[in-house]
């Protein structure tokens, strides 16, 4: 009551939200790994979140790979370094573009659907119904989804990497001829663990953020069906925002650890 007085309302709301989200995350770690495990639901969610996102992720990754290659070509051509195209493009794709684009796409697709699904379950009392039927809805709904996104996003990023690199291969071949063999050799010659591992580790965090924020917004939905829409929207906006912050931190941390 006394704390926060004199602070403007949006700022106060922001801090309250941040606090609640942290609490929600702590609850995930406290309850999510305790038996009984909702393994069936985890599998179902992994299918929904992971497998069903393949087409969208593939499409965007392919386009990104192709476009980045085409766009980088003139710059390298001036420099006379076209043969560096595969290496340079692959590094930027693997390190930054694919993880972030995949995370943003998933924040849009998965984050909003989690926010809307759990939100509508909340307002139609399905969550209460679960609670009274002896199933912990937090574990059944939230923990499974957060775990699924955390596991699935890195896999989607790896998958997206492959597709993006293939897009890059086509991009290289729009001007000039490079065999697939030479392309892969050049790509893998340049890539290091320092490129790949931080990118996979950060996508684990991206996945966690997307699942957590989506579930949080859904779980705290109020004001009926109108609230459901707002939750879905906020889930996308907030998780995209946090994805960028995590990305920034990841870049800094891997820099400090000399992984870049």
């Amino acid at each position: 009551m006394t704390l926060g007085e004199g602070i403007s309302k949006p700022i106060k709301t922001f801090f309250i939200e941040a606090g609640e989200l942290s609490q929600f995350a702590i609850r995930f770690f406290r309850e999510g790994f305790r038996p009984p495990y909702e393994f069936q639901e985890l599998l179902r969610q992994s299918y929904e979140i992971g497998y069903r996102s393949i087409p969208l992720v593939s499409f965007t990754a392919f386009i990104m790979g192709l476009v980045i290659t085409i766009q980088s070509h003139p710059a390298l051509e001036v420099f006379g370094a076209e043969s560096w195209l595969p290496s340079i493009v692959s590094v930027s794709l693997v390190r930054e573009i694919t993880p972030v684009i995949t995370a943003l796409i998933c924040a849009g697709k998965i984050g909003s659907s989690i926010g809307a699904e759990i939100g509508s379950m909340k307002v139609t009392e399905q969550i209460d119904a679960m609670e009274v039927s002896g199933t912990n809805p937090f574990k059944y709904l939230v923990a499974t989804r957060v775990l699924s996104t955390t596991i699935m996003l890195p896999l989607l990023v790896i998958f997206g990497d492959m597709i993006a690199l293939y897009g890059g291969f086509l991009g290289v071949n729009i001007r000039g001829v490079t065999t697939f063999d030479l392309y892969t050799t050049q790509v893998f010659n340049k890539l290091t663990f320092g490129d790949v591992l931080p990118s996979i580790i950060k996508s684990i965090f991206f996945g966690f953020v997307i699942g957590l924020v989506g579930s949080f917004k859904g779980y705290t939905t109020s004001n009926g069906t109108e609230g459901v829409g707002r939750s879905a929207n906020a889930a996308v906006v907030i998780s995209s925002f946090i994805v960028f912050i995590v990305d920034l931190l990841a870049a800094q941390i891997s820099d400090i650890l000399h992984l870049l």
Binding site: M121, T124, A129, V132, G134
Partner: peptide, 30 residues
């Protein structure tokens, strides 16, 4: 809670499940 039946105002059927699965749901823990 297993001894107390609760009918929610909105019925609160699980949208993502069939009727069969809805009815099985309370059995999972009891």
């Amino acid at each position: 809670r297993a001894k107390i039946g609760f009918l929610f105002q909105s019925s609160a059927l699980y949208d993502s499940m069939t009727v069969q699965e809805n009815l099985e749901f309370p059995l999972r823990r009891h």
